[in-house]
Nucleic acid binder design. Structure first.
Length: 497
DNA sequence: TCTGGGGTCCTGAAACGA
DNA sequence: TCTGTCGTTTCAGGACCC
């Protein structure tokens, strides 16, 4: 096994996960439940399991399982509705202990009520540092004695490795992955062990004959990008190699606020749906106003009787004065959401209705400010030569260059636009050797020829390329957008007319 | 008695607008 | 004034996580 490529020198990242959190709080607060199967979640007719105690898991009860199925598998368990206030209190206590562990030099990033990352790179020499191990042991003991819960902790050189490590030995365990051993620890695990791999990705990888992380690491990255898309393919390949440079970020701003509700029985009546919409919008408005936020985009989500989901959204026209063109009150949200609801086909009934607000800004922010900040950041990035997060030598990398050259053999093409000044941005197509000559990039001409027509390569910001196709007979233009590096971009198939 | 709720990120198509 | 060009924005849906 070749050594794992080194991450930033001396990085020490912890992932802390409270074991079976909701169920553990219930067992802590109700001694009669200790040592017995406990299931927390929706107890209504249409509900799923949020958390099952380890005693219940022994009977096959797990998260996201329909409550009805859980009751069949373990009818003698205690079925409880969540008590979020109690969970928030316990979470705050643990996060405070974690902040002490992180110290003034450390960073802490809460992920949810029961999970957090801590970066101790500034005060340690690496994951095996004795000081780190002693501090983690003390933290876990305090969680046990002061909060009455158990925590599993993973320590590694990155978020990825720390998270996988905390999952490996739980419950109530500590696992340290020393620097350099990331790949050998990951290799034998199933691909589902990697964060970001769910049932759909697992099935697609199985189609390639890939079931373990080691097999994933040995797979050509271009094949993964073709299968899963640029972002997921590249990230997954890096993860399989144990490479993860994501920083621990102490504070994250909310990007959307939403609420939704599953009805006891499917609803067809539009008047009833409108009433439910108003009620749900009121919940969203309360939370927006409590956080002093307003939003520009309103989304109505519906799940139909057959479980197909629909989302309809609308963005208000931007205003230039404080608060203009945004929504925050229930009335404003309903005014935007009702027409969206009317556009949804409710034939057969809806089982779920949701309302969300995104494009959030502070209630007192000038709407233009965030945009200006982003543009300045983009320009500064280009000037600094950072066109993209991908490594400069990655296939399809977008990179800032001082001068663009026509290079017929390598099939490069230029991109200009938002990122074109002050630096030129060059898009390097995947190797053209495998593509038929008529589908190769034509440097300087920006024309892609294909069976059903031809298209012009356009820039569309960082990391994405739009190709506009002209129909063979109609002359009607169609646009397809590709991420740079996509296999689809290499083939450049135009839409069918 | 089959499948919740609240999020994030990514992608492809289409619309918008200078 | 009209039309084509083309970068940006929006929309809709999928996948995933806890």
């Amino acid at each position: 096994m070749p050594p794992t490529p080194a991450g930033p020198a001396g990085r020490t990242v912890l992932h802390v996960d409270l074991d079976a959190f909701y169920a553990a709080v219930e067992q802590r607060d109700k001694p009669s439940l200790r040592g017995k199967p406990v299931v927390v979640g929706g107890t209504a007719w249409r509900g799923v399991v949020a958390t099952a105690s380890y005693e219940a898991r022994a009977f096959g009860v797990g998260s996201a399982m329909p409550t009805a199925a859980a009751r069949r598998a373990c009818p003698w368990a205690a079925y409880l509705s969540p008590r979020f206030a109690a969970y928030r209190t316990a979470s705050s206590q643990v996060m405070a202990l974690l902040a002490e562990l992180a110290g003034p030099a450390g960073l802490m990033e809460p992920l949810s009520l029961d999970e957090a990352y801590v970066d101790l790179s500034g005060s340690s020499t690496g994951p095996e540092d004795d000081g780190v191990l002693a501090a983690v042991a003390a933290f876990r003991e305090r969680v046990r004695t002061e909060v009455g819960l158990t925590a599993s902790v993973g320590v590694g050189t990155s978020k990825l490795v720390a998270k996988v490590a905390s999952d490996l030995r739980k419950p109530d365990a500590l696992l340290v992955v020393p620097a350099g051993q990331e790949r050998s620890v990951l290799a034998p695990l199933g691909v589902r062990s990697l964060p970001g791999v769910g049932p759909a990705t697992q099935a697609r990888l199985a189609g390639l004959g890939v079931s373990t992380v080691g097999q994933l690491a040995a797979t050509d990255e271009r094949e993964l990008v073709g299968l899963l898309g640029r972002a997921a393919g590249a990230a997954l390949h890096a993860a399989a190699l144990g490479v993860d440079h994501r920083p621990v970020v102490p504070e994250r701003e909310a990007k959307s606020v939403s609420a939704e509700e599953t009805f006891a029985t499917d609803v067809v009546d539009r008047a009833v749906l409108a009433g439910e919409l108003r009620r749900i919008a009121g919940r969203v408005a309360e939370r927006l106003q409590a956080a002093d936020l307003r939003g520009r985009t309103v989304t109505v989500k519906a799940k139909r009787y057959d479980f197909s989901t629909l989302a309809r959204s609308a963005t208000t026209a931007a205003g230039t004065t404080t608060g203009a063109g945004t929504v925050a009150s229930a009335e404003e949200i309903v005014a935007a959401a009702l027409p969206l609801l009317q556009a949804i086909d409710a034939t057969g009934g809806l089982r779920l209705l949701g309302v969300g607000v995104s494009g959030l800004v502070g209630a007192t922010d000038d709407l233009d400010a965030p945009v200006q900040t982003d543009l300045l950041a983009v320009l500064a990035d280009v000037e600094a030569g950072n066109g993209d997060d991908a490594p400069d030598d990655a296939p399809g990398a977008v990179e800032a260059v001082e001068e663009s050259e026509e290079t017929e053999e390598t099939g490069k093409t230029e991109e200009t636009g938002k990122t074109g000044e002050p630096g030129e941005v060059e898009v390097t197509a995947p190797p053209a050797a495998a593509a038929p000559a008529e589908r190769q990039w034509r440097p300087g001409q920006d024309v892609v020829h294909a069976e059903h027509g031809h298209g012009w390569v356009q820039g569309s910001g960082v990391g994405r390329v739009t190709i506009r196709f002209e129909g063979p007979h109609t002359g009607v233009g169609r646009v397809r957008t590709f991420s740079v590096g996509d296999e689809a971009l290499q083939a450049a198939d135009p839409p069918t007319w």
